[in-house]
Design a protein around this nucleic acid. Sequence first.
RNA 1: GGCACCGUGGCGGAGUGGUUACGCAAUGGUCUGCAAAACCAUGUACACCGGUUCAAUUCCGGUCGGUGCCUCCA
Length: 467
Amino acid sequence: MQLFNTLTRKLEHFTPQTPGEVTLYTCGPTVYDYQHIGNYSAYVRWDTLVRTLRESGYAVDWVMNITDVGHLVSDADEGEDKLQKGAKREGKTAWDVAKFYMDDFLLGLKALNVLTPTHVVRATDHIAEQIALIKTLEQKGYTYIIDDGVYFDTSKSPDYGYLARLDVKNLQAGARVEFNKQKRNVTDFALWKFTPAGQKRDMEWDSPWGKGFPGWHIECSVMAMKYLGETLDIHTGGIDHLPVHHINEIAQSEAATGKQFARFWLHCNHLMVEGSKISKSAGNGILLHNLAEQGFNALDVRMLLLQSHYRTQANFTMDGLRAARQRRLSLQAFADLRFQTVEAGELNAQSFTETHNVMLEELQNDLGTPDALAALSTLAESAQTYLVGSDAARAFADFVAFLDRVFGLKLGDSKDITVGQKQLITERETARAAKDFAKADTLRAELEAQKITVRDTPLGTIWARSD
RNA sequence: GGCACCGUGGCGGAGUGGUUACGCAAUGGUCUGCAAAACCAUGUACACCGGUUCAAUUCCGGUCGGUGCCUCCA
């Protein structure tokens, strides 16, 4: 399997440290608001990675974090805590806000048919471990304390910023952002933030340095290493995490262990909406709820994402979503043909095997979902023309199961039509043979009302679901 | 201002030094009792200007345009 490793900026052959077992960490959301389709796009991308790894024979131990504390409005460790801000906005406690949006996020993942990670872990459940890691860093001399918290001294990390190819000197010269003047280096980041004197936060804990809460970056290092070991096979995240969050994760993790933190770093690009980036102020952060109200299935969004490569800046448009929906329904009609194999069908088991192999090859080539889909569409189209022979029924069923494993479009979920519906089709054929077209059309309308479209082919009547 | 990336037919979106990506839509046709279905066919796509090459959309340089990051975000 080939994956593009941000660490080397090259397509590399991937093999895990332990044969057959992959350790994977994915940066999850900060749960202070609803997740929009752009946020979700990342998890669909990484879901495809997990599915492809599993299909390639690897067991995948997958950890995703939920940031429910400590992520400040600015990565420069300034401003309010996002959770605290959300709490103020909604008149709830930060704990309530976190719980509410975490649950909503998990429901969204389910709707998108994103596999459940082996471990979904919350930062607030790992406060003791975070304090322990900060202590280790302190003992090794990587930290210093200023008025608002405990900071990591990035100048002590010789390769600081390498992943992002950060030019640290240039950054310092061109720094425009105001930061705490007590910081030794502009890139230094908070490991622990103090609760300001005289204040009481919803979320705060005692620590050796004083009451407060953990910095945003430390949680990922802690939870990744706790569940997956000191060196991960793969660490994934959105491209926005590259220049700050990920280089900080590397700095603190490697400072603590002296070992490489992650062997492969994968970054997905952002989804645009109508050609612009998604931002709260632009009001284009479309939610799954919004799309559901317009009659779209979350799987239509999944389809749309599969059509583009995870490293490109894909564009979400309503026209694109409609096209994706049509394409998904067309693939569903193809999958439903497995209930309708015919004696004289020309598509044999080999057709499915060949397409299966091409698709897997494309996926293993840095998750080439667009090319894998193209191969599938080509087969689906020929199936409409040549129909599938009954001798290939088993191969067809296996193929649909494969599609669901890698694409997660739930094509295999649809059942055969009912005996009653089959009866209607037979009756309609009889009526047609008797040239009683009025009756035939009535029966067709009846089927249509049950979301079944019929079409007449030289080899007989074929049905497809219209929803 | 600094650093990247990108510019593909109506839309979305792959890929490649010389052969149809693919999907959606559109147009024409076939089949059909009819058809909203299905199938077949069609669009002289690869921003512009140079260069390298027998050959460039695909490599190199420049121009123009767009986007992202540097500042919250997946």
